[in-house]
Amino acid sequence: MTAYHRPTDLDAALRLLADTGATVAAGCTDLFPATDRRALPGPVLDITAIPALRGIVATPEGLRLGATTTWTDVIRADLPPAFDMLKEAAREVGSVQIQTAGTLAGNLCNASPAADGVPCLLALDAGVELASTTGTRRLPLSAFLTGPRQTARRPDELLAAIHIPAAATAGRSRFLKLGARKYLVISIAMVAARIATDAGRVTQAAIAVGACSATARRLPDLERALTGAPATALAAHVTEDRIAPALSPIDDIRADAAYRTHAAAELVRRALTDLSPQEAAA
C-alpha cells in the first residue's frame, strides 16, 4: 500500500508536500485514468479535506477562487456576468459526474492545451497563488502555464487559489467550444471573450483561444483593435491576421492546423456577435 495523506489544514499539507514530494490529488478525474493500476501510484497528497482551499470569496482586490472549487461549485455560484464564460465552460467539462469531482486547480495543474477553464481564466486576467513552506508567490496564469502538461509549479508548491482582479470582473462574457460532437468531447478550438463597454464604446476587450497552441493564448492584436471602438458589430473587427499570429495550432487526430485557425476565427466572430449590444436587445 502506498502512502495516502489527507490532511485537514494547509500548513500540514505543505509540510507533507515538502517532505514527501507526493502527487497532489484533488478530483482525481485525470489521475485515475492516467494510471493503469487499480490504485494511484503513491505517495498521494489528497487536498480535498482542507476547507480553506475550497470556495469563491470576495477579497479587497477582487475574487478568490479556491484550488479545490469544483466545476459544479462554479455553476451554482452567484457571480457577475463577466463569469458567464467560466460557467459555460464548467458545463462543458466532461460530464455532470466529472463536474462534481473535477477542480479548477486540477484543470490548471494538469495543463492540457485543451483545458476548458484556461481561456476563460486568461480572459479574466487570472493570477495563481502558489504556496509552500517557504512562503507564497503569485504568477499571472499566462506565466504559470509554460507548455503542454507543463507549469511553473515547483514540486514543493501547491496551487492554493486563483485570483481575479476587480477590474476584470466587469463586462459580459461568452465561451464557445468546437468539438466533433456535442458532449464529452476534447476541443478542436475554443474561445472565451469578455467585453466591457461604457457610453457606447468598448472599454475592455479580453479574448482568449484554447486548443490552438501549446497553451491557451490571448489575442492582443484583436483586443487593441476592439478597445475604444463603438460597441456595435464587434465581429466586424475579426480578421485572421489579427488572430493567427498569436496561435500555433498543431495537426492532430482531431483537426489540422489550418482548420483550427479558421475555426478559432469563426468562434471569435460568433462570440463577439453574441456580445454585441443589438444581440442583447433582440
Binding site: 489527507r6 490529488a25 482525481c28 480535498t48 466529472i98 462534481t100 469531482a101
Partner: peptide
C-alpha cells in the same frame, strides 16, 4: 452524481 471508479474511498 459521481463516478465511483475514480473517487478515492477516503473522500
Amino acid at each position: 452524481a459521481v463516478r465511483s471508479c475514480n473517487t478515492p474511498v477516503a473522500t
